[in-house]
């Protein structure tokens, strides 16, 4: 194995890691604030990709930039609507987080199969955001990967900023730490729940737009990404934004090297073995707070 080889693998790992990071942030964010495991995140990923496809190359042939913007906006509405229609009615009952678990599981099942019934198994492709490569000696990185990387870091900083500086963000954090207290001081809990779901689905949408050009769109694509994002969330420490991002880069790099040396079927198991070892050493993930 040459240096250039190692370098290119590292680049591939970092590029994939950036997408896992965005997806993981969506999961971690919803869990941190609402204490719900949102299994639908994977299905939202799939549907965001299909929406982008329908708007661009599928049916409407819009300008791709417009398609991306409409997709992201639609995802926010879907997230808010989903929370209002499905999650909110549950919240009146004790132990509703567990009930929410089954609802998100069942929604994921319905949405995945709906995609299969509507779009069929033929994979769809959406274009890269920017075409072309950067070449530097033996190293090669596509421009799209650079965009992905920048997007992941930007989203991370924006989220931190949002939670620390913006009124709504601070309110959400307060709600996460002390739900009863938050209600007493007059934080509009319902609105905050809707927003946090909206933000999470937007993150699923962004990761779909960034990752789908590489891994294609097919009805179960979201599950693969979801499981990896789930591992990333746990590895980084649930609720920790910084942890999630670092975990995504570590795990994606490990996965790329494992696939190179041992073969694709070992990617996921070793991904999880690394996690198990990590949890024995640090039971709350890298930067976990609870």
């Amino acid at each position: 194995m040459t240096v250039s080889m190692a370098g290119n693998l590292l680049i591939a790992g970092v590029a994939v890691g950036a997408v896992y990071a965005i997806m993981g942030l969506g999961l971690s964010y919803v869990y941190g604030i609402t204490k719900i495991f949102n299994y639908t995140q994977g299905a939202f990923f799939t549907w965001a990709a299909y929406i982008a496809w329908v708007l661009s190359s599928g049916f409407f042939h819009l300008n791709y930039a417009a398609a991306v913007i409409i997709t992201v906006a639609t995802m926010f509405l879907i997230g808010v609507g989903y929370e209002k229609a499905v999650i909110r009615p549950l919240r009146r009952f004790p132990e509703w987080q567990m009930t929410a678990l089954i609802v998100t599981l069942a929604s994921a099942m319905a949405l995945d199969n709906l995609a299969l019934a509507v779009f069929g198994y033929a994979p769809k492709r959406i274009p890269h955001l920017i075409k072309g490569n950067f070449v530097w000696g033996d190293f090669l990185i596509t421009r799209h990967e650079v965009v992905t990387l920048v997007a992941a870091l930007a989203i991370m900083f924006l989220l931190i900023l949002f939670l620390k500086k913006v009124r709504e963000g601070m309110a959400m954090q307060g709600m996460a730490q002390e739900p009863v207290g938050a209600r007493i001081v007059g934080i509009p809990i319902d609105k905050m729940y809707s927003y946090s779901f909206g933000i999470a689905t937007v993150l699923a949408g962004i990761s779909a737009i960034l990752l789908a050009p590489k891994i294609l769109i097919y009805p179960t694509v979201g599950w693969v990404v979801f499981i990896k994002a789930f591992v990333v969330m746990v590895f980084g420490g649930v609720g920790s934004i910084k942890g999630t991002v670092i975990a995504a880069f570590i795990l994606a790099t490990v996965e790329v090297f494992v696939t190179y040396y041992i073969g694709g079927i070992w990617g996921m198991p070793i991904f999880i073995a690394v996690l198990a070892i990590m949890l024995i050493i640090r039971p709350r993930g890298l930067f976990g707070t609870w």
């Binding site: 009930t99 609802v103 069942a106 099942m109 319905a110 199969n113 709906l114 299969l116 019934a117």
Partner: peptide, 21 residues
């Protein structure tokens, strides 16, 4: 093809109306 779409939708509906199972 619509089998699991229907199953998922039924489970969601039932759960929203009977959250305790």
């Amino acid at each position: 093809l619509w089998r699991f779409v229907a199953l998922g939708a039924i489970v969601v509906a039932v759960t929203v109306f009977i959250p305790g199972g």
